[in-house]
Amino acid sequence: MTALMGAAMAGCGPEPEEETADKAASSAARTLENVDRSKWPKATPERGLAKGLTLPLEQYMQSYEQRVVIDQAVRNLQTECMAGFGFDFRPPPAGTTPPPNANDANMERRYGITDRVVAEQYGYGLPENGPQTGASTPELTEAAGMVLSGAVRTGKRESPAPRSFKGKEIPEGGCTGWAKRKVGADGLDFSLVSRLNYESLAQSQETPEVQRAIGAWSRCMKSKGYEVAIPFEAIDLTNDTGVGSDKAVTIAVADIDCKKSVDLVSIWFRVDAGIQSKQIEKHQLALEETRKKNEAAIKAAEKMLRG
């Protein structure tokens, strides 16, 4: 009894027999085995002008795959914790609504579009089929929502949940707070690397070297009949027909061919990477700290998913 009390006090400490039964019941939903990974973005572009390019700051970012692993582990723990309060909580599997790029750097389209295979078919569009809908959300009763989030939301106001539900103490931040802490996902903050990554692109764009390359690209586009100053604006040439039209395909292919002929992506990448190396020197401690926290969380999450 003392042990059980202790577990309850600590949050949602799983009672062994419950955990086993629960695992058997929904093991399929609790791993990432059934998720379609074919739509997940590659860590580094495998095609086109950005093929194989990785910027220095990317080592400090969280990739899509890493985030999915952490998300799934948190969801499993939420289910476990909610079961301890008598709720059957079944979140959808993680990894079902992937972005086109693996991290903030967005190498695929960081300097505009770069993949001719995609451009030949989709113009400036993405190879996505069908309506893009989000993950389905299970209905939650008011009580379940309170135990999950540790907060009560009435209209626009949010207030903390009561300390306990049916005699059992609700962990700080609810089952979500408990699950995130257990994985080590609660303290993850990638805002510094995200901001630096934004700044290096903006700064690199203003350098004489990149400006020259952009000028050369713009002249190349003009020789093909298109008036456009910078790569990000080429897409606006498709405003009258849409980004996936035949006209857009022609422009997108010209855009990429011009980038290739003036070496735009390589030049821009080199300047961008140079700026990032200096940023890393200046912010190394903070960046390393985040990376270590991220690695620890991934390790913990992977261990949990292995069961």
């Binding site: 939420q78 959808p92 389209r109 993950a135 999950l148 990638f190």
Partner: peptide, 28 residues
């Protein structure tokens, strides 16, 4: 969004640098 993260891109057509915004972990 309870379960879907979002990325904002600093240019149209998912171009340029991007920034991730985490979901609410199931809360509605």
């Amino acid at each position: 969004a309870p379960y879907d993260g979002y990325r904002v891109y600093y240019n149209s057509g998912y171009q340029g640098s991007s920034q991730y915004f985490d979901h609410t972990y199931g809360s509605v």
